[in-house]
């Protein structure tokens, strides 16, 4: 499995001082299970949103995206010594590679090969449906604390983000949720930092409109 998901070693190393994660990534590379766990816990939600996007809708009846993420992380635990990067962006890229493999295996297992081009990503209503269907109708009126208010805001944001095209969603998540630099985000997305910036600008603009529609 590790063969398919080899990470390109980056030419320029990120400014280690600024990156709050560099210590944790380094510890994880040295084999600290705890540091790996900390990183994975942080990336779990992001991976889940990816799994929801790249996994066929019909297949989600048989394989839940959460399960795939769990398999992905288990696999990553086992194969962490094969990870050759230094930054969290590279780690995300590596994990995405494993996830992609898991998805491929799931597709193969349930419907044979070659039926689907993995690059053709479609939005499926997996995450959006729950959020919108079960979102509390009475929330704002009764929120007891700022914490609750924030939860609602996050929910509204998630609903709006779910309406973005997949790559726009991804770039917002990479940049703002996972706080990658545009260079790192570009690597994950397979484009240059400049292209990532432009994609992100469009995404933010679109998100602004979706948020307004939410209101």
């Amino acid at each position: 499995m590790g063969d398919n998901v080899k990470t390109p070693v980056p030419a320029e190393s990120r400014q280690a001082v600024d990156d709050p994660w560099s210590g944790t990534v380094a510890a994880a590379c040295e084999g600290s299970r705890a540091a790996q766990g900390r990183l994975f816990a942080d990336l779990r939600k992001y991976l889940r949103s990816r799994a929801g996007v790249v996994l066929d809708r019909e297949l989600q009846v048989k394989v839940s995206p959460s399960d795939l993420v769990q398999e992905t992380l288990m696999e990553a635990y086992r194969a962490f010594d094969k990870f050759e990067g230094k930054t969290r962006g590279e780690l995300i890229l590596w994990l995405q590679g494993i996830l992609k493999n898991q998805v491929k295996m799931a597709h193969r297992r349930y419907r044979g090969t070659g039926k689907r081009d993995m690059r053709r990503e479609e939005r499926v209503d997996y995450r959006g449906s729950r959020a919108s269907r079960w979102s509390p109708v009475d929330g704002a009126a009764t929120t007891p604390s700022g914490q609750m208010h924030k939860n609602e805001q996050v929910e509204r944001l998630e609903r709006a983000i779910a309406k973005l095209p997949p790559r726009q969603e991804q770039v917002v998540r990479l940049r703002n949720e996972l706080r990658l630099t545009f260079e790192e985000a570009g690597k994950v997305l397979g484009c240059s930092a400049g292209a990532a910036e432009k994609l992100w600008t469009r995404a933010v603009d679109r998100l602004t409109r979706e948020l307004n529609d939410e209101k």
Binding site: W21, R38, D42, K150, L157, V172, N176, V204, L211
Partner: peptide
């Protein structure tokens, strides 16, 4: 919109790894 994003996903340094 970015303000909302920043508030929803605050920038926090990772906790000390266990």
């Amino acid at each position: 919109c970015l303000d909302i994003l920043h508030e929803a996903w605050p920038q926090e340094p990772p906790a000390e790894p266990p």
